[in-house]
Design a protein around this nucleic acid. Structure first.
Length: 326
DNA sequence: AATAAGCTCAACCGCTCTGCG
DNA sequence: ACGCAGAGCGGTTGAGCTTAT
């Protein structure tokens, strides 16, 4: 009954993207900015459906994407947020602007689910071995609402309540932090963490995009770079290599028109959800955690809530404006 | 060294949401 | 108020890669 899938048309290519296609897409987006995906295939000549273009952009080509291993902090944050928000990966991803929802989703499904299961199994004994998974997911679900996928309360209302909670938590956090000696001392930019360069004003994410793409293409174009698998190979090698040290958004002055878009995405996310990480952790801890979480909680709260806050903050907040917080 | 099993992650699919005429 | 089209989201799949036997 529904309308035919947009990708059903004949002549629409599927499967892995080629470097050439990536280039076409990137140059188009650099020129026009992301959005109006419908027009992308026709304007670029790409034999891809609009959906595929958007997905490729958001999950792979978009600037500022961090690939590779998740840090411990990110991991914990994801767990917190998953407990709080459920499987709303896009919402979770908005708290980790360098990660895509797909990435987070994959990481959750492949790593964290198992990890939680293991931890809970270790804690609860055999009792609910199977229920363990349910506990992690079900707990989240229970948090998000009885229905599982959807909050029991209307979305807007639910979000508002969440924000109220977050506001409370934020104040508590501010109080707590205000007791600490010096914020600057407490948040030394560790080598690994890349906070936004302080020289933010002129920065555009597109420069980093261009760099990323260039690096990708470098990998692709280089003969014999990593087996036969073009994009994937380079994607997981070169980009992973750059993951930890990539000076996120270090460039300046590229395609300013589009910068407003992509730069806007994370920034927008930050604006929409200035209440980041640690606050939500508190909320999660306060209302959402299912009873069987003690060991898990202690692991999570260990440095997520206590002394580790700084790390979390610096790790997660970088994209947002710290002033949003206080 | 060969094969099987397990794992990862990019991409696809189908559904829902949102904006517009 | 209604219907349509486009965009976005979450779940799922499958090819390629890695590790174990």
């Amino acid at each position: 009954m529904g309308r035919p899938p947009c990708c059903d048309k004949v002549g629409v290519k599927k499967g892995p993207w080629t470097p050439e296609e990536d280039l076409m897409l990137v140059s188009y987006v650099q020129e026009h900015g992301p959005g109006n995906w419908r027009a992308v295939p026709t304007n670029t000549g790409l034999m891809r459906c609009s959906k595929s273009c958007r997905l490729r952009w958001t999950n792979y080509l978009r600037p500022g994407i961090k690939r590779g291993n998740f840090t411990d902090q990110e991991e914990k944050l994801i767990i917190h947020l998953q407990a709080l928000l459920g499987n709303r990966w896009a919402a979770i991803a908005s708290y980790l602007p360098e990660r895509t929802d797909n990435d987070i989703k994959n990481y959750w499904n492949t790593h964290l689910k198992k990890k939680l299961k293991k931890m809970q199994a270790g804690e609860g004994g055999g009792g609910d071995g199977d229920g363990a998974a349910g506990a992690s997911e079900g707990g989240a679900v229970a948090t998000a609402g009885a229905g599982g996928k959807r909050p029991a309360v209307p979305k807007g209302q639910w979000e508002r309540r969440l924000q109220t909670d977050i506001h409370t938590a934020r104040q508590a956090l501010r109080d707590a932090l205000s007791l600490e000696p010096s914020p600057s001392a407490s948040a030394p930019p560790p080598a690994k963490v890349e906070p936004l360069p302080a020289t933010a004003p002129g920065y555009t994410t597109y420069a980093s995009s261009a760099e990323n793409i260039a690096r990708l293409l470098e990998g692709w174009l280089r003969p014999g770079s990593g087996g036969g698998k073009g994009p994937e190979a380079s994607g997981s090698t070169s980009t992973t290599a750059t993951t930890q040290q990539r000076p996120q958004c270090s460039g300046e002055g590229a395609a300013s028109a589009s910068a407003s878009h992509s730069g806007g995405a994370p920034a927008n996310a930050a604006a929409q959800t200035p209440e980041c990480s640690t606050e939500t952790s508190k909320v999660a801890g306060a209302g959402a955690a299912p009873p069987a979480f003690s060991m898990l909680e202690s692991w999570l709260l260990d440095d997520g809530m206590g002394h580790g806050e700084d790390g979390l903050m610096t790790d997660v907040v970088p994209l947002g404006d710290p002033s949003e917080f206080f």
